[in-house]
Design a protein around this nucleic acid. Sequence first.
DNA 1: GTCTATAAAGCGATAGAC
DNA 2: GTCTATCGCTTTATAGAC
Lengths: 180, 180
Amino acid sequence: MRKSAASRESIIPLLAEAFRDHGYEGASMAVLESATGLGRGSLYNFFPGGKEMMAEAVLDDVDRWFYERIFTPLLAGASGVETMFDGVDSYFRSGRRVCLQGMFALGRERDRFALTIRRYFSDWVEALTYALRDAGLSEPHDRAVRVVAGIQGGLVIARALDSPDAFAVVLKGARRDAGC
Amino acid sequence: MRKSAASRESIIPLLAEAFRDHGYEGASMAVLESATGLGRGSLYNFFPGGKEMMAEAVLDDVDRWFYERIFTPLLAGASGVETMFDGVDSYFRSGRRVCLQGMFALGRERDRFALTIRRYFSDWVEALTYALRDAGLSEPHDRAVRVVAGIQGGLVIARALDSPDAFAVVLKGARRDAGC
DNA sequence: GTCTATAAAGCGATAGAC
DNA sequence: GTCTATCGCTTTATAGAC
């Protein structure tokens, strides 16, 4: 029986999980095939640019999610801060899921995806800065940088120690720093 | 002219820089050869276990450095906290140098080097907890987790934004959290 | 101890049938 | 749109000369 046509949209989350689980280099075409259930030809049909184009699409998709669910609420004002923390805790599965942009930033992939990675973090810091200023907190920019860095570091240490508790501790501290 | 014999010890820092610059997978044998100036045979002579053994030796070397310069002062008491921040800022070149353990923790290498990575971070948190308790601060363990995570996240965001300033901001906040 | 040559496997990308 | 076969290249590891 012929396989029914998959949509480009529907496979992007599957590619994302594959990249998260194996890293950019570790996610070989064979891995991406089995993660999506598609053959090589199908993948290249959706993404003529190959693996790099798939990763770019995945990063864009994550970026879009954060824009809608995190950045936009932040740009609406102080109330977005709580929304952000809840959204982040949920998105990163309380520290069990890594941040692709953070992972790529530390590795060789930083050069290849520099603009996308940079935009993700600068948009985040900028939106959070706005919300913290709206909340009347002092030094909103520095606070925003600390909070975003804390979240990223929380993911690193939670994975290193294999302890989601560490992420919870960091997130609690970041909430306090952000006036929650 | 025959090349003079290199010591295993002397090439470990060169291997470390290569892994930092290219990541574990990106640091191919060809890269490691040119980073050390040695041929393949010499590298396998020093490290019969190949690339994995080289990375393990590098991680151990970093661990040893932190033990002497960071953890031991922390275990001597509250005064070690300042020593730690100065040492960390210097070691990570104010955010321009990545943490190998942190990089590996986010990637696929976490599984392969799980014990080494875990020990590095748990020793760090433990030693810092001791020093913060000695300084009379409340919730020393949670503070220690936040500080170490902040440092790691600062490295992520500094690289992502290509801005060592971000690392400085995070480090300043962590110092305050640690009572400096 | 150092080197080069090479083996064996895996990689991303492509071609072409259906 | 989907698949498989295959190309060309790179990878790690090994063998063997010096």
